[in-house]
Design a protein around this nucleic acid. Structure first.
Lengths: 249, 249
DNA sequence: CGAGACTTTGACGGGCATCAACACACGTGG
DNA sequence: CCACGTGTGTTGATGCCCGTCAAAGTCTCG
């Protein structure tokens, strides 16, 4: 295809992730000269429209996917038609590694919730690079650990917290990524539909609607379609994980 | 079954896992001569009484633990005093790898539910062996994947199934490990206290008691303290997850 | 036998699922 | 311009399930 890599004048192939904002933490960062050409050969980008599917549940692994822009939802469909939103992947996160590492089919579907860009290293060469460079495998392993931690947190949260509290926490977390700080409150446009949001906390859409109304009645949230305003007080008192939100007031 | 002998020729140290029933799948199996002596040097076993703690939540990693006999519970304690049973580790399973891989403190407590034996490779030398032998890291990664899969299954189950159904599934799964087949039914002694069992499905002990009564009233379960009888019909019709089951397409 | 821990039962209130009907925005086509 | 269908989100009514508190029952081990 087209090789639109940023050229270094030294004559050697540049690292395909070299210009990426997440380069330092990239799983491919430890790859040195000998591996870079392999990496570059199988490296590609893909632009996804809102709602577009990156890979289907049950499909074979296409390699290692790294979210570069946007937001990808990982969802599991069951035989009875129900589905569960398992994870939201933000830029810098790796997805599809489960299937890549165990050579099995994807167990989740990956779909863009907003227009997104994903960087892909195709399977064959990704395997080759991983074999040649164990520290890449170590980095993949630490992504696995992060995924385990997140899953455990979710299991604990769903066992100990009320749905209302879980909803507030998820909203605050979303606001940290999508929110803009205005005077006195934080505003954001939800990247999720109501059914998806309901899935995320594990309730029916009707119940979600009622939870939303309860939050509004308590005064610190205000909803209007996908727009949400959150009182700054609630937002700041939240312990907070994840990266800080961009300030563009 | 091609079982290659772990025995070595004259003078060489034998592989410490060589005689283990799980040797073929051991994460240390790929270690060859040069690494075996390192491995053997830091290898130890530990016998645990029922209720004894293997490692505490918050403690530094002691290395890689492999369950050899018995049953270990991994439990997370929260600041508010609540706890959640996250995992039951059966013989052949690796525990403590999360802390080992990311060099952080344990996020869970490991406690023996029944008298157990655990094989330990101390951290320093375990790190050394992993560095020298990438395929050990690959095996650890696949244990991570298994843990991710299990966590996802649990998240999905708690989002889609009723507590009664989840309890039945957990009982059937336990019966697959602890049950003895008698005429017309399967009998087992639960390795868990009622509060632990309640934790496992995420309800209060009182609710568990009522669920148990409902199962008994429906006729296919019979409880007496920690003894449980399960009708063979229910036991057999269960598609089930857990070790000895093969997946369909 | 008796004390303490564990387990069950009862009563009560609230949260959630389910089914059904309604409100609303957005598009197309008459 | 309006009628109309569709997809999406909301509201209402009802019944079940679960958490909580309190009390009674049961088991176990000294």
């Amino acid at each position: 295809m087209t090789r639109k890599s940023p050229m270094t004048l030294s004559g050697e192939a540049p690292h395909p992730c070299g210009h990426c904002a997440f380069y330092q933490d990239s799983v491919w960062q430890p790859v040195e000269q000998s591996g870079v050409s392999t990496l570059a050969r199988s490296f590609s980008r893909r632009e996804l429209d809102e709602g577009e599917v990156l890979f289907e549940q049950g499909a074979e692994s296409g390699g290692v996917y790294c979210v570069s822009r946007g937001l990808i939802a990982l969802r599991s469909y069951q035989s009875d038609g129900k589905s569960t939103l398992l994870k939201l992947a933000y830029p810098g996160e790796i997805i599809g590694f489960r299937s890549f590492l165990d050579d099995g089919p994807h167990r989740t579907e990956a779909r863009a919730l907003v227009a997104s860009r994903v960087c892909i290293v195709a399977r064959r060469d990704a395997k080759r690079v991983v074999r040649a460079n164990p520290s890449v495998l170590a980095r993949l392993a630490s992504r696995c650990i992060a995924e385990i931690d997140r899953s455990h947190e979710r299991i604990i949260a769903s066992a100990t917290l009320s749905n209302k509290v879980r909803l507030t926490e998820i909203l605050l977390q979303l606001a940290r990524h999508h929110g803009a700080r205005l005077e006195g409150y934080v505003e954001m446009k939800l990247p999720l539909s109501r059914p998806d949001l309901a899935d995320l906390i594990g309730v029916q859409p009707e119940t979600l609607s009622r939870l939303v109304k309860r939050l509004e009645r308590e005064g610190e949230f205000l909803f209007s379609g996908r727009r949400v305003k959150i009182a700054e007080t609630v937002f700041d008192e939240d312990g907070g994980f994840g990266p800080p939100i961009a300030k563009r007031a």
